[in-house]
Design a protein around this nucleic acid. Structure first.
Lengths: 354, 354
DNA sequence: TTGTATGCGTTATCAA
DNA sequence: TTGATAACGCATACAA
């Protein structure tokens, strides 16, 4: 059942190198290299001989050696903020084809929102001499990021720009997103709403709340009618917990709608609402943020503020690649606009009964 | 706004090497290496001098050079089958700490269910000389996998074993899982059920259906009362589409419960059911497979057949690491048992009304 | 068109 | 305790 297979090659045999191929083909090492890198400069006859030797020996280029020689790796890296949130995987999915088109591999790492993990990943990536780093940072102004730039490694911020603005970034205006979400709720006639989200250390959360408050004030609503339900993380579980607290409010203070700082919170809140028999959107309207696929897939499809996830990744990749290749590169901030995607969780025009 | 920063080091300056450090510290290159690798053999005074030089120059080891020297990389890789399914990311999350504990990095790749992409990733990984590969394969018997083994690279199958059984694998018995799911529905009194899933080329799907059919037969039910609704992929969208077809069945043939080959399908089906006003579980009970976090988070929490996702990853990592390190390694198949996680989507004991 | 020689940065061996 | 040297596999400049 668990018999060791008799391999055609001893497991300990070392990989054949260009030298071995050269010997087998009866040519010099340089010729083998030419076959690999400038095949047109080699005569058809010898080329075939070399290629035959390569396949017979099972030759595979050693990437470490190539990198050492080249002075840099052929890879990009993306350090995401929360591996449990599909949003970031979608961003990564946008980066990958761009990296591949440039002949580069993509290393995907997850800081999990912890500065120490972020720093550790960054360390490793510098050791690998990656050509560029895409990062959704725990703290966009952390000193260890400046260190990366000082080394001359292209570093692009994804979803957040740093204060100094001295590097490329790809952002979606979170204040504007907060405004859009809140205005949607105002339009739907809600007069008492909740903002669900936290912790406050996350800039995106602060901005979205700020946007919501702006709109709220502009419509002349009372600040106290926009209740902030803080959470400890942007997770489904915290969304559920927020639901409990929301349900516990005295009815005169209870909001008729909730704007969640991301879709995970919104899904948790939705679940809690349904479980206690609330009708969504009639008893409680819910709007999320990010528009991950699971938002559209929810039992009550979730209204959400869409960020162009793949596009973020693609654009960020374009920027690092430019910074890596073009000596005249100038940093730029590519800003995208969030857009509202209205679904059933806030009521459709059709079904809305005032 | 997009001003080029004046770096303390010219962007083109090359990274300092051990040689540079040695020069700066006034010692030989070998001593620097000793500081790095065998600090105890260096006198405290020189060690400090070297360390100071290192930090002043901003020295960072070059991983390529280390790898070239060592003859192998310090990395593991996981090639997942579907990056859009959180299940696989959870497996990866189980691998990572194990890799880290062994001092290895983890490359995560996504074949997206396509053999050519899988092959391409594998190629790249061989070039990188990774120490081992974890793989949820498109086809566990594909010849390019044998090629990996022939090279002596530890290869562990995750969630699927190959026919020959000549390598390590970590599996969860899908037939058994299918049985558990179907029996749960039988227990709930369902006499006509659907199996939603496909394509047939996916072994896991075949096995789960087989298990369901086994139970169905063992309980003396008619084969025709277990309807197979094939899908083209294991996605939310396909789940929704299956819902349409299910609703289109004549009522005498319409199942009262659906067993979905994975949770994404189940979520799609759930959404469709809710959208057409079906009550879940009363009008239609739904059971999924994998028990991803979003199953528990659904508006109607989804009953699912749980696979120990992180544990799969952790165990697979243990096996590759053993194969990579122990010359006396014997291949083994670590088999886990799936377990039912009953939630509201199939009715709870309490609320169940026969 | 092909061959020879050198160096990338690191680690390890050996001699001092 | 420290220093000099070789080797890992590859790509390239240059010579033949």
């Amino acid at each position: 059942m668990t018999q060791q297979m008799r391999d055609s090659r001893a497991p300990s045999a070392k990989d054949p190198s260009v030298k071995d191929v050269a010997a087998a083909a009866g040519v010099s090492l340089g010729t083998v290299s030419n076959v690999l890198n400038r095949p047109s400069t080699v005569s058809a006859a010898t080329r075939q001989r070399v290629e035959r030797a390569m396949s017979e020996l099972g030759f595979v280029r050693n990437e470490s050696a190539r990198q050492l020689r080249a002075g840099r790796s052929r890879a990009l890296a993306y350090v995401m903020l929360d591996g449990g949130n599909p949003f970031f995987h979608d961003v990564a999915a946008g980066i990958e084809p761009a990296a591949e088109a440039a002949g580069l591999s993509l290393f995907v790492c997850n800081s999990d929102g912890r500065a120490d993990r972020e720093a550790r990943h960054l360390d490793l990536l510098v050791q690998q001499r990656v050509q560029g780093i895409l990062l959704t940072p725990v703290d966009p102004d952390a000193p260890h990021l400046a260190e990366i730039s000082r080394r001359g490694i292209p570093l692009v911020m994804v979803g957040r720009s740093n204060r100094a603005g001295d590097r490329c970034s790809v952002t979606v205006d979170d204040v504007s997103g907060g405004r859009i979400a809140a205005e949607h709720l105002v339009d739907r006639g809600h007069r008492r709403i909740a903002f669900v989200g936290g912790p406050d250390s996350i800039g995106q959360v602060r901005d979205r709340l700020r946007g919501a408050r702006e709109i709220w004030a502009e419509y002349g609503r009372l600040a106290e009618d926009l209740i902030h339900l803080p959470t400890e993380a942007l997770t489904v579980g915290e969304g559920r917990a927020a639901g409990e607290r929301l349900a516990g409010l005295p009815s005169r203070r209870r909001p008729t709608a909730a704007f969640c700082a991301n879709d995970l919170l919104a899904l948790g809140l939705l679940q809690h609402a349904v479980s206690v028999g609330l009708r969504v959107p009639d008893d409680l309207a819910i709007i999320g943020y990010d528009d991950i696929d699971f938002a559209a897939a929810a039992a009550v499809p979730l209204t959400s503020v869409r960020q162009p996830r793949r596009e973020l990744g693609r654009t960020a990749a374009r920027l690092v690649l430019d910074e890596a290749a073009d000596p005249g590169h100038r940093h730029e901030e590519a800003a995208f606009a969030p857009v509202l995607v209205a679904r059933a969780s806030t009521g459709t025009i059709r079904s809305h009964a005032g």
